[in-house]
Amino acid sequence: MTSGLVDRFGRVHRDLRISLTDRCSLRCTYCMPADGVPWLASSTLLSTEELVRLARVAVSLGVREIRLTGGEPLLRPDVVDVVRALAGLRGPDGPLDLSLTTNALRLPALAAPLRDAGLARVNISLDTLRADRFLELTRRDRLADTLAGIDAARAVGFSPVKLNALVMRGVNDDEIGDLVAFAVARGLEMRFIEHMPLDAGHTWRRDEMVTGEEILEAVSARYELEELGRDGSAPASLFRIVGTPATVGVIASVTGAFCDRCDRVRLTADGQFRNCLFAHEESDLRSLLRDGADDARLAEAMQACVSLKKPGHGIDDPSFVQPSRPMSAIGG
């Protein structure tokens, strides 16, 4: 298989996000209700063998980067085995760029095994530095555990370690400068993300969203910034703090959409292939796998899904409808 994952707008897809589970150890207010959401049935979840086979097919179609997501991916019991298997895949350019997004709660125990298994880097969610606010946001009193996980990631040599903060008006927008200072002091990369309509309760309102421009204004109030632009198809606009090597990124997924250069596809924990975070249609690769499809048929299904990708997510279009799956079930 040599043809790639190219849509009708000429976008070449090289970045695969694989959700390992829809379960999570936190109950973030912007993601799910306090009592959680109905979990996917265990019988529908991809086995490690199935997951790795689909990843291998995707690599044969040009995927060069894989990020493991959730839910919380470290809740998957065999996460180290998954990482080891994926780290063994090779594309024409050599090993894959293999990373993972996590809330860090299990990193004190798993950072070293994951690093030894071949994981290259981690992105850690950190929306606040205040214990009371962390409890209010996540409905769990676990800030100390998250900070311990960040320290564990640094200790085993993951590089870079990126911190992701979702900025919400009247919730944590007063901590933007403090989060940057925290990251800079530890040699970490801070990334701020605009709030997107992916909550399970469908309560998102655009007029309540803190924009990328407002985030930059808040950072600039404390630091002098030098614009670096974007790194290829990466979603973050990067800025260097003048006089330091530290960078700050802003992912303006709503107000500064980067759909025209998007190179991402997604595989959910239950084996559904998605061409966009906001897609309403999925390609059921799990059923194909379990019905005995060969790799050529799986590749054909992936290519067909990508060929239907829309030009953009359409959040600003009056006809926009939020996807039925919440973020926890899609994978970040």
Rank of each mutant, 00 (worst) to 15 (best):
A131R: 15
F134T: 10
V250K: 06
E224D: 15
L126M: 12
V254I: 15
T211Y: 09
Y223S: 03
E217H: 13
D127H: 12
M190L: 13
N172S: 02
R130W: 09
L228I: 02
G177I: 06
A181P: 00
V180N: 01
T211A: 11
E194D: 08
A183L: 03
R186W: 07
E217Y: 12
P235Y: 00
I193M: 10
R133S: 05
G170W: 09
T138S: 13
R169I: 09
L238C: 03
N172D: 05
I241E: 03
A183Q: 01
E189T: 12
S237R: 15
H202A: 14
P160A: 07
C259K: 04
V219E: 05
A183D: 06
E214G: 06
V184P: 00
D174F: 07
V184C: 04
V219D: 01
G187I: 10
A218Q: 07
I215G: 02
R140H: 14
E214N: 09
G212M: 07
V248M: 00
L129R: 02
R140M: 14
R169H: 10
D132I: 13
L179C: 03
A183E: 06
R240A: 05
G170D: 01
S220I: 06
L166A: 15
H202T: 07
K162S: 08
A155C: 08
A131I: 11
K162R: 14
G170I: 05
I124N: 08
V156T: 02
M196I: 06
D199F: 08
N172Q: 09
A131K: 14
N164M: 10
D173Y: 09
T247Q: 07
R142P: 10
S220P: 06
T138W: 12
G232T: 00
I176Q: 07
R133H: 07
L216M: 12
E189N: 01
G232D: 00
G201F: 11
C259S: 07
R222P: 05
D174C: 03
I150W: 12
L163R: 03
A257Q: 13
L198H: 06
D145P: 13
L216H: 07
P235H: 01
A252N: 05
F158I: 07
I150M: 10
A185E: 11
A252T: 10
L147K: 11
D231W: 00
G229L: 08
A165F: 11
W204M: 05
A185Y: 02
L179H: 06
A234R: 00
S220Y: 11
T211Q: 10
V219A: 00
G229K: 05
T128G: 01
L126P: 08
A155K: 10
R191D: 04
R222C: 07
I176S: 07
N164R: 10
I241M: 01
R191G: 01
A252I: 04
L135E: 15
P245N: 08
G256F: 12
R142T: 15
L137V: 14
